[in-house]
Amino acid sequence: MADAAQLEEVIREELANLWFDLNAARQSALNGEWSMQCGYLERRIKKLTPIVGATPWEEIQLPLLEHGIYQRIHAELGIEVSPDMEKVAKVRKSIGRRGLREKP
């Protein structure tokens, strides 16, 4: 039988996967923003987050941080999160530069 620490780790892994899936669902949404699938994933995130706390922002996909989705979901749960948006912007800029260099 799994102990409490193992269960907590499984929940943390599942949350990280749900955030990844939410980002993918947003990208594939008809309007490019939100879909029923996004809502479903948000509900699952909201059920698990109070059990183990917020997924560290460093593990969250950039668009979810840049559009404030990560922050909004936690605010609705009454959980304070403080992503370093300067670091997020630097990572985005770095990705952009690499993309420009890779183009022929």
Rank of each mutant, 00 (worst) to 15 (best):
P50N: 09
V52N: 05
N23M: 13
L30H: 11
L41C: 03
E59G: 01
V52I: 12
A25E: 10
N31H: 09
Y70M: 14
E13D: 05
K93H: 13
G99A: 12
A29N: 10
G99S: 13
I79R: 11
M85R: 01
P56L: 06
R92Q: 13
E9M: 07
L15G: 02
H67C: 14
R26G: 05
W57R: 05
D84S: 03
E8N: 08
E58Y: 10
L15W: 02
I69Y: 06
L65D: 09
L64D: 14
V88Q: 00
H67Q: 15
R44K: 15
L77N: 00
N31F: 08
K90M: 07
T55K: 02
Q71V: 15
L64T: 06
S28V: 07
V81D: 02
I51H: 07
K87R: 14
A25G: 07
R43D: 12
R26C: 15
G39L: 01
H74F: 09
E76T: 10
E14G: 01
I69G: 03
E58V: 13
E76S: 10
K90I: 03
E58I: 08
A54E: 08
I73Y: 06
G96N: 14
R44G: 02
W19F: 11
G39D: 03
R26S: 09
I69D: 04
K90D: 10
Q71T: 15
E42W: 03
D84E: 08
W34E: 11
R72A: 14
A54P: 12
K46V: 08
K46G: 07
A54C: 13
G78C: 03
A24E: 07
I73A: 05
V10T: 08
P50C: 05
M85K: 01
T55E: 01
R12M: 04
L77C: 01
A29K: 09
E13F: 04
F20W: 10
L22W: 07
I11F: 01
V81P: 02
S82I: 00
Q71N: 02
G32W: 11
C38G: 00
E58A: 13
R43I: 01
L100S: 13
L77Q: 00
T55S: 05
C38I: 04
S94K: 11
R97E: 15
Q37C: 02
G32K: 08
E8Q: 15
E8G: 06
G68I: 13
L100R: 15
E13Q: 10
P50S: 05
G68W: 09
E80N: 12
A16K: 07
A75Q: 11
E33G: 01
Q37H: 14
L62S: 07
P63G: 13
G39M: 03
P63T: 11
G78H: 02
K93E: 15
T55Y: 01
L64C: 12
E58N: 07
L18Y: 14
F20Y: 08
D21N: 13
E80T: 15
E33A: 05
I60H: 02
A24S: 06
H74A: 07
A29R: 10
